[in-house]
Design a protein around this nucleic acid. Sequence first.
DNA 1: AAGACGAAAGTGGTTGA
DNA 2: TCAACAACTTTCGTCTT
Length: 325
Amino acid sequence: MEGGRKSDKESLFTEVKFTCPRCGSDQIIKDPNTGELVCASCGLILSTGMVDTDKDWRAFDADEYMDRAHTGAPVTPTRSGYGLDSDIAMTSGLSRKSVQTLRRTHRHVSDAREKAVEPALRKIRLAAETLNLPPETVEDAAMLYRKAAGEGLVKGRSMDAMVAAVIYAACRRTDVPRSLEEVASLFNLKEKEVGRSFRFLFRKLGIRIPPPKPENFVYAICAKLGLPERVATQAIRILKIARQQGATMGREPVGVAAAAIYMASQEFGEHKTQRELAQAAGVTEVTVRNRYKELLAKVHKLWLEQLPEDLKKQMASFRESAEGQ
DNA sequence: AAGACGAAAGTGGTTGA
DNA sequence: TCAACAACTTTCGTCTT
């Protein structure tokens, strides 16, 4: 590979020593224009909503403090019993015998439900680890599975396909860019099978899942190609205009993303071939080319017009120094 | 020679009758 | 169930640098 050039190229990962609270990746990129910190792995914007580990309540005197304090194990749908166990105490007012009866009934009902979903939840947790999913996504997947199981949609279907489907759905709902192919192959399933379960699920549950945004794929593709953050930032600008212009409708989001990156990289003199972009995005050269053509027609001019003067000059100088090499 | 571009034919999914 | 359709892929030839 062209190892020599890489050192004088601006590093994609500026020395930010954060790790992503969602996926744990340390590939955090800083957007020079907005100052936002973005995770290159899962696309989460960090700086506008850093995790607040403080209390979620305030107290103005000691009594209030005692009153409002609540602690204990976090509630999570990813574990059976939501990570909580409940029991019925031997309190006064009830005979020993009725407490025992109550306990037995309670255990019977909750155990039966929990036992039914436990293997699936275990699979979800395992898959999440391999796919490097943030907790938010894992919880959503677990929640969806519980909902599906609760409505009897799981019976008689392949558990793996259902688990894969809820994981994919959760990724979509929480803006984590994982492809159907990635999720399906983890379970040795075909895209088609998972896709079918996915559609069945959200049709039956009445859940609306918007198509993935092309922006979600930008940082992952740029990271694969070692493109600097300024290219990623502008690609996202291009994609925002593209959406306003209706240039993303009905198009494969990842293909549009690749084309936008191609466009931005050219303006910055960061030459990558259409083939390289296509490979990084997992589409063909022709798709990149066609999306690029559409972006040229509908977006390119608007994008350049909206750019601040100093950034235009910056682009020109980057292009010149690239040509000089 | 490498990369960009375009045309033509084929593929697999979706939609509506 | 089937045909029509849109988006995408594969393949290949031509043009440009």
